[in-house]
């Protein structure tokens, strides 16, 4: 138990520190790298509470795809972050106020949260207890059977998105392609001309 508590505090501390670095680092690339560190630690926290599926999704989706995309964007766009952060102190009070309101709301929600007792009866697919079946297996139980139709339909939506992205961006402009035959067929007498250029007048 003590080991778990130690692990929790370790991961939580690293998470908080890296989150602070994300918004305070001068170099945007450092920000993104710290964001990835924060994601990893959040994933570790999920593992500690037994939500291993969420942990894996966090690593695969957020670290594997989203953060890498961020990294590309940050590296490709030439943003001067020092300039962007100039009004930081001016906005600090109002930012802190918004943060405080959010914190109070979260505390209220966490304190007053309760399940409607009648709701448990209406659940379509109650989640089995963790010691019976892990989350991943429980999701797999229904995802590819009961909800197979929706799973496939979501796949088709992604296909439509892909077609759409290609249709709207790919254009068959006059692209110069390499034609090896033409290159080989080229002869000096076709392409080289001799000009008598007088000095000072050009060709």
């Amino acid at each position: 138990m003590i080991l778990q508590a130690l692990a929790f505090y370790l991961f939580a501390a690293i998470l908080l520190v890296s989150a602070v670095v994300v918004i305070s680092a001068r170099n945007p690339v450092h920000s993104v790298l710290c964001l990835i560190l924060a994601f990893f630690n959040a994933a570790a926290l999920f593992v500690l509470v037994g939500a291993e599926f969420l942990a894996m999704i966090l690593v695969i989706v957020y670290v594997g795809a989203v953060a890498v995309l961020f990294l590309f964007v940050v590296m490709m766009l030439d943003i001067d972050h020092a300039e962007m952060r100039q009004g930081f102190l001016n906005y600090l009070p109002i930012g802190a106020l918004v943060g405080l309101v959010l914190l109070v709301e979260l505390v209220i929600v966490a304190g007053l949260w309760q399940y409607e007792p009648a709701m448990a009866a209406g659940l379509a697919q109650p989640v089995p207890p963790l010691d019976v079946r892990s989350n991943t297996a429980a999701i797999g139980d229904v995802l590819y059977t009961r909800y197979a139709l929706l799973f496939q339909a979501a796949g088709i939506i992604l296909l439509i998105a892909m077609i759409g992205a290609i249709v709207l961006t790919l254009r068959h402009r006059q692209i110069k392609r390499q034609r090896i035959g033409d290159q080989v067929r080229r002869r000096p007498e076709d392409v080289i001309r001799l000009h008598d250029a007088r000095s000072g007048e050009g060709v």
Partner: peptide, 23 residues
């Protein structure tokens, strides 16, 4: 509700692209 949303989104996504077809 899930079928409702998935069907609606499948339809809408295709239609957005159709609307912008003459890019």
């Amino acid at each position: 509700l899930m079928t409702l949303y998935v069907g609606l989104e499948m339809q809408s996504l295709a239609l957005y692209v159709c609307a912008a077809f003459q890019q």
